[in-house]
Design a binder for these strands. Structure first.
Lengths: 335, 335
DNA sequence: TTGTACGCGTTATCAG
DNA sequence: CTGATAACGCGTACAA
């Protein structure tokens, strides 16, 4: 049951290991006969190249890393992440890259995991989904020339490989859409304040209000987790002390929570209260009332990120760019 | 920017490479002074062991593989899989194992992917989530002595490492529960017929009917994808030609589809028609009417599988076992 | 307690 | 067109 190596093939085919190696890599300077003979013995012996040994000498692992920088439970509960992973997995597959997954419990651990992946030479590059501001991890990766691509981070840092949607614009448009529908007292339920997505969406929300001459009220906004429970509690809190006619939740799961909170307090949606979300998770359309939301082509973002990373790894003189994926408002029943 | 190796450390600390190696592996026979000196220089030089090189010599990758054997879109759309992944990821992390993810588009490609992982020596073992009957992949893995653990496969093959829930029993209990509630004309919506889970749940369903003296009717069962759309269409088809008082869908997403189909045709749930699901996906509780379902501790199954696989890999004389995770009926509004 | 020499499976360089 | 030989970075008998 011993593993058959390049040497075994060489011996059997009566050539040197180098020749076998050349056959494997389709080297042009090799006679058709030997090539065939070697290929035959490879089949015969059931030979498969050892990727580890190859990695060692090539200094390339053909592996990309992905670390989820949230408590894994919240990360996986949100369909957003699984869809991103899906996009990445498919592209990796097509490009003959392996995908290494790692889950970090918090922000600090994410840093450790990412650095470890590089330090142990397990990956050729990573895709980062963490979205906090002010990340020294980024600097570190830049300093050490470690290939990486960001997903969903701010645009404020320049010249950095990133796949994003324009959160400011999207939030602006949704808010504008709500105002156009006649809503004036629009409350906002945001994700954690230190996430760039939260900040950007908040900006767009405020911009739209301002342009329509609607005063921004601090008491109409709440920050919470990107979760059903977070949205639920936040909505209850806002409804308790304020009279409003619409909710704009910066995430679909939060929007669901909002929906149920409104329902619980006896508000009819959308007649007495409108609710809008963000993401267009696949599950959204199945709920009642169906959620009006901002569609983000999440899958495409994952794919784009993977493609960019692989290109950065492969091409010496390409170091990534900024890709903005366009969003779209999906009107449904909840508004 | 060159990578610092064991040799660099050795030279700097004025010892031999083997000594450094011993320090790394905490070899007992080494003087405290040299140990300290070596450790210091490791820090000083920013040394990190190269996992690839280590893998090559140790013939261990410390990596477990996971391949999703569905069209990736359907795989990821179903929360079941993401939760399994989560459980696996957490345990892998704790055990200092890497997790390699791979997505296969179909049954045949799954086989290729799994074998490739082993042939290229990328993994020490794999976790399989494919659930079709009669799998030669399994045999192949057994023959080649490749560590693996199954999740959710049949119990019919003996002596095989597997984490499962007792689908027959669970389906029996849910059907029995429905009958106890007074329902008699219970239709079943199953996943694909060649999946073992489907078959097992169907068995339990039939057993319960039989024990209560209720005749089993072929026209009251339908097979479809594990998806919302599948359940929706199946329910419509059944309702079109039959008069029934309850649906038992063998998956929550299908149950949702069923729910909406009933709604569409004007049936009030649960007053005119009961609907029961399977899995207890986290999202279930948020729907209206909230779904009565069979709770499977999915996360625990992932964890158990990962733990078992790692133990198989590490312990020479342990080759896995059969772990049955208990299920539980969660009564909610839909029944 | 430490150092030397060899091997893990491949690729690359340099001769021939 | 092909074959030695030397790396890649590390672990480990065997010696000292």
């Amino acid at each position: 049951m011993k593993n058959v190596t390049i040497k075994d093939v060489a011996r059997q085919a009566d050539v040197s290991p180098s020749t076998v190696s050349r056959v494997i890599s389709n080297s042009p300077r090799i006679s058709p006969e030997t090539s065939k003979r070697v290929r035959d013995t490879m089949k015969e012996l059931g030979y498969h190249p050892n990727a580890i040994a190859r990695s060692l000498v090539m200094q390339k692992t053909n592996t990309i890393g992905l670390v989820l920088a949230r408590r894994t439970d919240t990360a996986f509960a949100n369909p957003f992440f699984t869809e991103i992973i899906q996009g990445i997995a498919v592209v990796a597959q097509q490009s003959h890259f392996n995908l290494m997954l790692s889950a970090a419990q918090d922000y600090h651990q994410e840093r450790e995991e990412v650095l470890k992946m590089f330090q142990n030479r397990m990956v050729d590059g990573v895709i980062l989904m963490a979205s906090r501001v002010n990340d020294e991890l980024i600097k570190k990766l830049q300093q050490t020339n470690s290939p990486f691509v960001l997903i969903g981070r701010s645009l404020e840092i320049d010249n950095i490989p990133i796949v994003n949607n324009n959160n400011i614009k999207a939030a602006y448009q949704m808010t504008d859409f709500l105002i156009g529908k006649g809503y004036r007292k629009i409350a906002a339920i945001s994700g954690p304040a230190d996430y760039v997505v939260s900040q950007d969406r908040m900006k767009g929300y405020q911009q739209a209000l301002q342009e329509h001459g609607i005063p921004f009220k601090e008491e109409l906004i709440r920050y919470c987790d990107f979760s059903y429970e977070g949205g639920y509690e936040a909505a209850l809190a806002i409804l308790k002390d304020n009279e409003i006619d619409a909710f704009f939740a910066f995430d679909d799961m939060m929007a669901f929570g909002t929906l149920r909170a409104a329902e619980k307090l006896g508000f009819a949606v959308p007649d007495q209260l409108a609710v809008a979300g963000f993401n267009d998770d696949p599950i959204v359309a199945y709920f009642r009332p169906a959620l009006t939301t901002v569609k983000i082509p999440i899958l495409k973002m994952g794919e784009a990120a993977a493609r960019m990373l692989i290109r950065i790894i492969k091409e010496e003189d390409y170091s990534g760019e900024e890709v903005i994926i366009p969003t779209e408002i999906i009107p449904r029943e909840s508004v």
